[in-house]
């Protein structure tokens, strides 16, 4: 059952074609990697999934419905930036999530934050950069969503934090929900992926099971990706 389905999805910014006839079917219960270099259209696709950007043409369905209020209820989105008001206390931010997201698990959030040794009665701006990122991830994972979309969760993150984030993602994985992780750091994340989608210059090059790719080519996903890109360059 496809939980995210796009048909000939296109997005044009003036003269640039950010997405070029993207046809995707992402099934439930998988950890899917959206892999591509910077500027390949990953963030554009993610914004369209989250209904904060409208496509130029084509269609997209989230759990069978068009992006809107209902789809926002079932998608938990971690953007690639600081999206929280740093002047707020962490406890206030948690209450904000509780107020506006029906499926937010308050206890789980406090539990995750205590594991990270993060105090909740302080303002967000007092935290280190690494802890701020952990807090953001904890909030997103504390929602009981059908789809989790993580945009570059480990880019610009130190190795210790990166391991922590990957462990947190694995720990919170449940087979009823789908995880879409977009990144250009393929090497660090490929071992946790069920399926991989290669995207470059707005087009989908490949969408395949990760282990199947490995056994077919006897190469790491990272190397396969580099090879695919090289092929395109040589065309």
């Amino acid at each position: 059952m496809a939980i995210i389905e796009t048909e000939n999805l296109c997005k044009q910014y003036g003269k640039t074609q950010a997405l070029h006839f993207v046809n995707l079917k992402i099934n439930e219960g998988k950890i899917v990697g959206l892999l591509g270099p910077n500027g390949s259209g990953k963030t554009t696709l993610i914004k369209i999934i989250n209904n904060i950007l409208q496509p130029t043409s084509g269609s997209i369905l989230i759990d069978g419905i068009e992006p809107g209020i209902k789809s926002k209820e079932i998608i938990s989105y971690l953007p690639d930036c600081n999206f929280l008001n740093e002047e707020m206390k962490i406890s206030s931010i948690i209450n904000y999530f509780k107020d506006f997201f029906k499926n937010f698990d308050l206890n789980k959030c406090y539990y995750l934050l205590s594991q990270m040794n993060v105090r909740t009665d302080v303002k967000l701006k007092t935290l280190s950069k690494g802890n701020k990122e952990r807090v953001q991830l904890a909030l997103i994972l504390s929602r009981d969503a059908k789809i989790y979309v993580l945009d570059e969760p480990i880019a610009g993150v130190d190795p210790i934090n990166r391991d922590f984030i990957l462990k947190l993602i694995i720990e919170n994985y449940n087979p009823d929900s789908t995880l879409l992780i977009s990144t250009h750091l393929i090497q660090d994340i490929e071992s946790i992926l069920d399926e991989v989608i290669f995207i470059n210059e707005g087009s989908i090059i490949l969408h395949e099971d990760a282990e199947k790719l490995r056994s077919e080519k006897n190469m790491s996903i990272n190397d396969i990706f580099k090879e695919e890109l090289q092929c395109l360059v040589n065309l």
Binding site: I31, I170, E171, P175, L193
Partner: peptide
């Protein structure tokens, strides 16, 4: 499955497989 997945940072489905 979960223990190994966490220890190795690998997808639980892979361990299950």
């Amino acid at each position: 499955v979960r223990e190994i997945a966490l220890a190795l940072q690998v997808n639980p489905n892979t361990i299950q497989k």
